[in-house]
Design a protein around this nucleic acid. Structure first.
Lengths: 137, 137
DNA sequence: CTTGATCCTGTAGTGGCTACAGGTTGCAGG
DNA sequence: CCTGCAACCTGTAGCCACTACAGGATCAAG
């Protein structure tokens, strides 16, 4: 059995995060010692580490929990797991594309700056592009 | 003068967001009609649209406000503007790199799934990788 | 005069934590 | 046995940037 500090070190989550997961029902409450301290089994620590790994992969907490439940259940319904994984992959790719478009726009904007001139082309562009549109109807 | 709905349509922000900006001090409070409704000048609407444009480029709201203040000020200190822009560009590139690493890891994970088998290679990998580490010290 | 669009304030919720404040417990050294 | 300090406890508030109501007032058109 491990105290919450040890569970944190071993899972990679912070103590606060572990308590938060428990409070919000993302992790089951562990047993307690006589004095009321949380006591985690190796299995429970592994489940916390699993959540951490999923979060690191960018899965929303709810998906991480779903994956954990699939992982700890008797059978491992690969199809469901694959669906969640593919969804996340698609989401990550969507975000990458979005950020790349942003990078383009920003690079162009910053590229106009040739170092501290008085008139600022970047601001001019920003002002322009924020051009107040006539009301779309 | 424009009502808040018109200001929202013209700036691209939602009505709620405009009120939020005002409440939090990111946008100055506009004048009011006799009955207490907000009345925006074209200039104020343009400032809101400028904030929207910056937010769309991923600038944190505080940076968007700083840029707006630089843009509406008498002089346009290009150096500062460039610094904020470059910082944001760097941040966007950092996020892209982070997401690409994630994409790699996820694609590999999902690639192991060959469609609904009983044993799930993806879960196995997740379980493995979440291997509970002995306490780092 | 009625209807429906628009507006008002104020509050609570989102996700996923993080950071206290203010207290208790456990253990090692003296 | 006492002291000190690390580790733990609960509970609350804050972060970012909104979004979504609830419950009411006002305006313009028919």
């Amino acid at each position: 059995m491990f105290g919450i500090g040890e569970a944190a070190r071993r899972s990679g989550l912070s103590i606060e995060t572990i308590r938060y997961y428990e409070r919000e029902g993302f992790a089951p409450p562990p047993g307690r010692t006589a004095s009321g301290r949380r006591a985690y089994s190796a299995r429970e620590v592994a489940a916390l580490a699993f959540l951490k790994r999923c979060r690191d992969l960018g899965f929303p907490l709810a998906d991480a929990v779903a994956l954990r439940d699939l992982a700890t259940g008797a059978e491992a319904p690969c199809a469901e797991v694959e669906a969640i994984g593919c969804g996340q992959l698609a989401e990550v790719r969507r975000k990458i594309a979005e950020l790349q478009a942003l990078e383009q726009a920003l690079a162009e904007l910053v590229g106009n700056c040739a170092g501290g001139q008085a008139a600022c082309p970047m601001l001019d562009r920003l002002r322009q592009e924020a051009g107040v549109t006539s009301p779309a109807r």
